[in-house]
Design a protein around this nucleic acid. Structure first.
Lengths: 223, 223
DNA sequence: CGTGGATGGTGACAGTGTCAACATAGGATC
DNA sequence: GATCCTATGTTGACACTGTCACCATCCACG
């Protein structure tokens, strides 16, 4: 058994060393990273159908089978792209939530950030949450970035409860409700299920406002 | 220009006549319908990747290019399947909502029905709302079934407002909020984004209860 | 210095969507 | 009743995909 890295696709590239001028050589230097970049670019330009092993290899300037030294299959490459997107989302959410002292404002900012990313990079967003990468929990990077993003939401809600601006209750439940509502509009928006009128509501910021407002007030009539 | 039915794929089959024993003949009798059935079956069995023109044709017992006399392309066949799913959803929602006089109970029933369908037929559900059929508004059957389902939600909310059990406000906005929340949990549930704890909350009915409760009460603390 | 493992390349196979050209069946028309 | 027309199905081809098996090269460590 030659046993290549069949299980741990390790495309990460913290150190941005300039590839030491190895372009054009036999050994690319850092394929894996280059492939993830190529795949991300393809996703943006041509949609999910356009991002494949062969296309990414072509864009990276290697043979059609080179990717298999870095990813066991297509889905793993997609997972790497998705992990990058989730990390970017978590970063943005941290910034957005950190900028407000009032939890309700922070939650509104989170919702807006979430929807803005969905609208700006729809293909990436769908890849991050959709079924194209089926076993998300098996890809460590995906799992971690997802948990990080979720924790921001959780912490913000807990802070609001301590400050008395968010009603009592299991923070996990409240977080789930909020996440679902925001994720739901994003999905409906991206997939063209919203009426013209709904989609013209000021774009993502407007939709975010609408949803957070709804959630804050509730459906029951206030006495 | 031979001009086949290049634009109006008309796969409908209200009358269930027994195909008049034409099976096996040159003319199938009602391909188009048979293809939609085959595609639906393939979707259930093998997921979205397994449903293609050629596979459906094979299952229907015709040549690999026969489907092109009934659908201009693969996406149109998928649209027909999605339309069927949406019609079924609308039917179920009508039944669920009609069984309750109190609007709040009706809304809860709607949410549960929605989530139950998502859990029972995940592939169909994703096809109905996902990006596989990109231009949903162009396929008349899809558009109509979608509107029918949405109208049920709208009417239920309006009834609740008249009865004083749902707070005032634009019904379209309230409907959007509710739809987004329910659709959001469904999507997160199907795509494996929920924690173990959240997913163990009694399955779809539990999740439906959680979300509707959240929406009713709101996040703001009640005075 | 040399060798072995990691990395990349070649070739092949089955499968797909789609186009073009051809064949047939059966109803409309004369 | 014979004839044509058109809707429907078939055959063949092309480019593309993911994946496998096998071969080539390079680099680092003994």
């Amino acid at each position: 058994m030659p046993a290549p890295s069949r299980d741990a696709p390790r495309p990460a590239r913290p150190s941005r060393r300039p590839l030491t001028k190895r372009e054009g050589r036999f050994h690319h230097g850092d394929l894996g990273w280059a492939l993830v970049e190529a795949a991300t670019q393809l996703l943006e330009r041509e949609g999910p159908a356009g991002v494949g092993l062969r296309a990414a290899a072509r864009l990276a300037g290697v043979s059609h089978n080179a990717p298999y030294r870095h990813f066991p299959d297509r889905e793993s490459m997609l997972a790497a792209v998705a992990a990058g997107g989730l990390a970017a989302l978590a970063d943005r959410l941290e910034k957005a939530a950190g900028g407000h002292r009032d939890a309700r404002q922070a939650l509104a900012a989170i919702a807006e950030t979430y929807l803005r990313l969905a609208a700006e990079r729809p293909h990436l967003f769908r890849l991050m949450f959709g079924p194209d990468v089926a076993d998300k929990s098996r890809h460590a990077a995906v799992r971690e970035a997802g948990l990080r993003a979720h924790r921001i939401l959780l912490d913000t809600i807990a802070a609001g409860q301590r400050a008395g601006t968010v009603r009592a209750g299991d923070p996990a439940d409240l977080a789930l409700g909020l996440w679902a509502a925001v994720h739901g509009v994003a999905a409906l928006f991206l997939d063209g299920m919203l009426s013209e009128r709904a989609r013209e509501r000021g774009g993502p910021p407007g939709l975010a406002r609408l949803v957070t407002e709804q959630l804050r007030l509730g459906l029951d009539p206030r006495p």
